[in-house]
Simulated assay, not measured.
Amino acid sequence: MHADIVVLPGDGIGPEIVSATLPVLAAVAKRYGHSFSFAEHDIGGIAIDRHGEPLPAATLEAARKADAILLGAVGGPKWSDPNAKVRPEQGLLAIRKALGLFANLRPVRPHASALGASPIKSHLLEGVDIVVVRELTGGIYFGDKNRSDTEATDLCRYSVAEVERVVRSAGALARQRRGHLTSVDKANVLETSRLWRDVATRVMREEFPDVTVEHQLVDSMAMHLLSRPRAYDVIVTENMFGDILTDEASMLAGSLGLLASASLGAGKVGIYEPIHGSAPDIAGKGIANPYATILSAALLLRHSLGLVEEAEAVEAAVSAALDAKVFTTDLAAPGQGVDTAGAARAVIERLG
Results as ranks from 00 to 15, higher is better:
residue 323 D to T: 13
residue 62 A to Q: 03
residue 110 P to H: 02
residue 140 I to C: 06
residue 109 R to G: 03
residue 31 R to N: 12
residue 339 D to S: 15
residue 310 E to Q: 14
residue 324 A to H: 04
residue 285 K to V: 07
residue 13 I to S: 01
residue 295 L to P: 06
residue 187 A to Q: 14
residue 195 L to P: 11
residue 295 L to G: 01
residue 145 K to R: 14
residue 75 G to E: 01
residue 28 V to L: 09
residue 323 D to Q: 14
residue 88 P to E: 03
residue 132 V to Y: 06
residue 125 L to I: 09
residue 167 V to G: 01
residue 32 Y to W: 15
residue 257 G to K: 03
residue 217 L to V: 13
residue 170 A to V: 09
residue 300 L to E: 02
residue 294 I to A: 03
residue 225 L to P: 07
residue 223 M to G: 04
residue 287 I to N: 03
residue 182 T to Y: 05
residue 20 A to M: 06
residue 303 H to L: 04
residue 131 V to I: 15
residue 177 R to H: 11
residue 145 K to V: 11
residue 242 G to N: 08
residue 137 T to Y: 05
residue 86 V to T: 15
residue 186 K to T: 12
residue 173 L to Q: 10
residue 342 G to D: 11
residue 154 D to C: 04
residue 289 N to A: 10
residue 3 A to S: 15
residue 259 L to C: 13
residue 225 L to V: 13
residue 24 V to Q: 04
residue 31 R to D: 11
residue 128 V to T: 08
residue 152 A to N: 09
residue 47 A to T: 06
residue 125 L to C: 10
residue 324 A to P: 08
residue 144 D to E: 15
residue 199 V to Y: 01
residue 51 H to D: 07
residue 167 V to H: 00
residue 11 D to W: 01
residue 121 K to D: 15
residue 73 A to P: 10
residue 328 T to S: 07
residue 56 P to W: 01
residue 302 R to E: 15
residue 8 L to V: 08
residue 330 D to E: 12
residue 49 D to K: 13
residue 136 L to H: 02
residue 251 M to S: 14
residue 201 T to H: 11
residue 4 D to A: 14
residue 264 L to K: 01
residue 134 R to I: 13
residue 274 P to Q: 05
residue 297 A to I: 04
residue 163 V to P: 04
residue 31 R to W: 04
residue 245 L to Q: 09
residue 61 E to T: 14
residue 332 A to P: 12
residue 328 T to A: 09
residue 55 L to T: 02
residue 310 E to M: 08
residue 251 M to D: 06
residue 340 T to R: 06
residue 56 P to V: 11
residue 263 S to E: 05
residue 322 L to C: 01
residue 133 V to Q: 10
residue 101 L to H: 00
residue 327 F to I: 11
residue 285 K to R: 15
residue 347 V to E: 07
residue 234 V to G: 02
residue 41 H to T: 11
residue 333 A to R: 13
residue 305 L to W: 01
residue 114 A to D: 08
residue 143 G to A: 12
residue 253 A to I: 09
residue 177 R to T: 11
residue 128 V to S: 03
residue 41 H to P: 02
residue 51 H to I: 06
residue 232 Y to T: 10
residue 184 V to A: 08
residue 247 D to P: 11
residue 304 S to K: 02
residue 140 I to N: 02
residue 329 T to A: 14
residue 349 E to I: 00
residue 285 K to I: 09
residue 105 L to N: 03
residue 108 V to L: 10
residue 205 R to H: 14
residue 193 S to I: 02
residue 326 V to G: 02
residue 291 Y to N: 10
residue 188 N to P: 11
residue 162 E to G: 15
residue 248 E to Q: 15
residue 55 L to A: 05
residue 350 R to Y: 05
residue 80 S to R: 09
residue 141 Y to V: 08
residue 274 P to W: 01
residue 127 G to K: 10
residue 45 G to T: 05
residue 198 D to W: 00
residue 350 R to Q: 12
residue 78 K to T: 13
residue 290 P to F: 08
residue 297 A to E: 04
residue 48 I to Y: 00
residue 269 V to L: 01
residue 292 A to L: 08
